[in-house]
Measured scan of single mutants.
Amino acid sequence: PREAYIVTIEKGKPGQTVTWYQLRADHPKPDSLISEHPTAQEAMDAKKRYED
């Protein structure tokens, strides 16, 4: 089974940042970016789909 994890990042100019959620996995390479999402819920949904 595949495993993934969610990383929170800040995008934008200082003082005007927006939080994004990255879905990452250690396949095919360590810390590979799988997808980016504007909400934590979307990231969790993507994580479930990826791991299923």
Rank of each mutant, 00 (worst) to 15 (best):
P30E: 08
G12M: 04
A40T: 06
Y5K: 06
K48L: 11
E10D: 10
H27A: 07
V7R: 10
R24M: 14
L23M: 03
Q41E: 14
E36A: 03
T19M: 09
K29V: 14
Y50N: 02
E3R: 15
I9Q: 04
V7Q: 05
E10C: 14
M44C: 11
Q22C: 03
A40M: 15
T17E: 12
G15Q: 05
D45N: 10
E51K: 07
E36F: 03
P30T: 08
P38W: 06
H27K: 11
Q41L: 11
E3I: 15
P28E: 07
E10Q: 14
D45R: 10
Y21Q: 01
D45E: 13
H37C: 02
M44Q: 12
E36M: 06
D31Y: 15
R24H: 06
Y50A: 03
W20Y: 11
P30K: 12
D26C: 14
K13Y: 12
Q16C: 15
A4D: 00
Q41A: 13
T8G: 05
Y5G: 01
P38E: 11
Y50W: 15
T17L: 13
T39F: 04
E36Q: 06
K13C: 12
T39M: 03
R24V: 10
T8I: 14
P1M: 13
H37V: 01
H37F: 08
M44S: 08
R49F: 09
A25W: 04
D26F: 07
D31R: 11
E42F: 03
I6Q: 00
K47A: 06
E3G: 14
R49A: 14
A4C: 15
E42V: 03
D26S: 14
K47G: 02
D26M: 12
Q16H: 12
I6S: 00
A25M: 06
I34L: 08
P14M: 09
T8W: 07
Y21H: 04
V7D: 02
V7E: 04
S35I: 01
T19Y: 08
K29D: 10
P28D: 08
I9N: 03
E42W: 02
R2C: 13
R2Y: 12
T17F: 10
K11G: 04
L23C: 03
P14N: 13
T17V: 09
Y5M: 04
K13P: 15
Q22A: 04
I34F: 02
A4T: 08
S32Y: 11
E42A: 10
E3S: 15
T19N: 06
S35K: 01
R24T: 05
E51W: 06
D26V: 10
E51H: 07
A4G: 08
P14Y: 11
V18A: 08
I34Y: 02
P14W: 07
D52F: 12
Y21D: 02
A4R: 02
